[in-house]
Design a protein around this nucleic acid. Structure first.
Lengths: 357, 357
DNA sequence: TTGAAAGCGCTACCAA
DNA sequence: TTGGTAGCGCTTTCAA
């Protein structure tokens, strides 16, 4: 330190190695804080000479701007909030990963919270993120109502829904074309010669509805009957969903008099449960029953019977959702909500490799 | 609004529905901001009557404190930073999930960044989190050197290493007892009658070193020879690690004249690669070669050959790391660094179910 | 090109 | 029990 500091500042430095402030650099160089601040932000009206000197000294002193102070004035936190129903689910993990990668380069950080599929908890987490004044919010919602979104809108914070959308809510949305998912999967089973195709659908989300709708349309287009009892739903509470849900639903299907010869499962964990039930009953996959999942979860290749699955391109969903959110942050005034649908792709594996009839 | 507001504030309200401030509530109720602030923080010297009234009005007006302003004064951001090498890896996803759950109830949010196994990127991400003044840092490091940790220490921000530790660094650490992992896995193979046990180890991390050491110790204790060439390492760069790395390493092992009859793999993805190589060569698991993985990754039950694996209890690791970090945030002065080791557990499945000799 | 002054929303400190 | 005042570290505005 070349220049003298006030007693208060000295004391502060001593007590706990407090981070360097603009003021410290200013005093050290005999300049004003304003000048330093301008250099920091690349402001134009600073002498080239001064700028270089300041920049150099900043590095030497390991200066890092205080985001809180900056946010207090500018209102920008350089933080994006993400709410997912479950971080452990590979789909959401992949989405989080690609969002993170997309915003990193732009100077943003990601606050991730998990709702554990609980609407109430999700509500709280959204409130937390709003209180922290994130610049934008990305939400894969477990909500039944649109109330919490209204709250976000009041705050005028841009938000993008991921994966699950809500009818009658003019919100930005990025997800897969779920109806197409259902059509791809069902058509494939039909092509493989299946004629009694069942569907194990998910709980009441747009995703589940869309896939079920695609399934119905595909059947109808091939003039196949929609056999009553061939659409089952897994539970929406904790243990019923995923693998155990698929197992239970399939057991019911197997007991059915018109036993299906193909099953389109809402997602891969459900498909795993279905396969366990089928193999456990002494039946063969795909000869007796073919199975299609959705999500193309990691390691599908290594399963007991490698699983045919519809890939949702979760990486693209994350990337596009992040890009959309950032564009909204930069935008002035209200922008018309956008919907971006990613095109699903069928990955064929052994679980549907049977002779066509 | 019962009371009059200044022109400036009025203007602000109009321009953009700005969030409610303490000042707004104060003016509305004819009290001072200090009083409101005290109520907000549960300060004792406030009349019961006033307190209730204020609390009620706060709710009505949807007041949410501004974290930036608060952080500026108190120095607390109520944010924990987490750096992982890969969010998609189920181990780190589970760790993140349980950290998130653990700190949620205490009012903290989690900033998650991914280093993509790149030490340089990790350095940058740590800097980002430091600049944002997180209250504590949790790091599963991809680093080779301890330089970036020194930087954190300078800042006096508490940090906890997860999963991978560093010799000669007096840092807090929470992870699995890796040597025990190696011992459990290897002993199990020995008990199952394997006599030529190979190990496919990971890149130069404490985790890989510990597991390899446990493997060696178990062999030595059973007076089994450590056959040269029976320890292979997967690459550390992108595509070589994980499944493809395990596949390549196993191909080399199979070509070996003293072909192993058991393989202990660094982690489950590597084990998947190993199984693919073994089955692809027309050999049987576990009859010809038994395989043990580590991590007990999701869906191990549903693999072509269900995989015996050492469970690291990633959930406990996350939970304990978070608890440790929070205790450090609250602590006054320097605390002696703590190491917490979680005890691994062997989960036996088909990939090692062979007759004992 | 540079800097003095004001103030972002809140809390700490002390006086009333 | 209540509130005035000062200031956290920074940016904004405007004058020099």
């Amino acid at each position: 330190m070349k220049h003298s500091s006030s007693g208060k500042d000295e004391e502060k430095k001593a007590r706990k190695s407090a981070p360097v402030r603009l003021k410290d650099i200013a005093r050290d160089m005999g300049l004003s804080t304003v000048t330093i601040s301008k250099v920091l932000r690349g402001h134009s009206d600073i002498g080239e000479e001064t700028r270089k000197r300041v920049l150099k000294r900043m590095k030497e002193m390991h200066y890092q701007p205080n985001f809180a102070a900056r946010a207090l004035i500018t209102g920008k936190t350089w933080t994006i909030g993400l709410v997912v129903p479950d971080l452990l689910h590979p789909f959401f993990a992949q989405v989080a990963k690609s969002i993170s990668a997309e915003i990193r380069g732009q100077g943003y950080c990601l606050m991730i919270t998990s709702s554990e599929e609980d609407p109430e908890l999700e509500q709280q987490e959204i409130d937390q993120l709003l209180a922290r004044r994130v610049d934008a919010l990305l939400i894969a919602s477990a909500q039944w109502t649109v109330e919490s979104f209204r709250r976000i809108e009041e705050r005028k914070i841009p938000y993008v829904l991921i994966d699950r959308k809500f009818a009658g809510l003019g919100a930005n949305f990025v997800g897969v074309d779920d109806e197409l998912v259902g059509i791809l999967a069902t058509n494939h089973l039909i092509e493989r010669g299946c004629r009694r195709i069942a569907h194990i659908r998910g709980p009441e989300t747009s995703t589940a509805l869309g896939r079920a709708e695609g399934y119905r349309r595909a059947l109808a287009e091939h003039s196949l009957p929609a056999i009553p009892g061939h659409i089952l739903s897994i539970g929406s509470s904790g243990d019923d969903r995923g693998e155990p849900g698929g197992f239970e639903a399939t057991r019911k299907l197997l007991a059915f008099k018109a036993r299906p010869d193909g099953i389109f499962c809402f997602n891969d964990p459900v498909a795993l449960g279905a396969m366990r039930a089928i193999l456990g009953a002494g039946l063969r996959i795909p000869q007796d029953i073919a199975v299609v999942g959705c999500g193309n979860v990691l390691y599908s290749d290594f399963l007991r019977v490698p699983l045919t699955s519809v890939d949702q391109d979760s990486s693209a969903i994350g990337k596009r959702a992040a890009a959309l959110a950032l564009s909204l942050v930069g935008a002035k005034g209200t922008v018309r909500p956008k919907t971006e649908l990613v095109v699903p792709r069928l990955i064929v594996r052994e679980s549907t490799l049977r002779n066509q009839k």
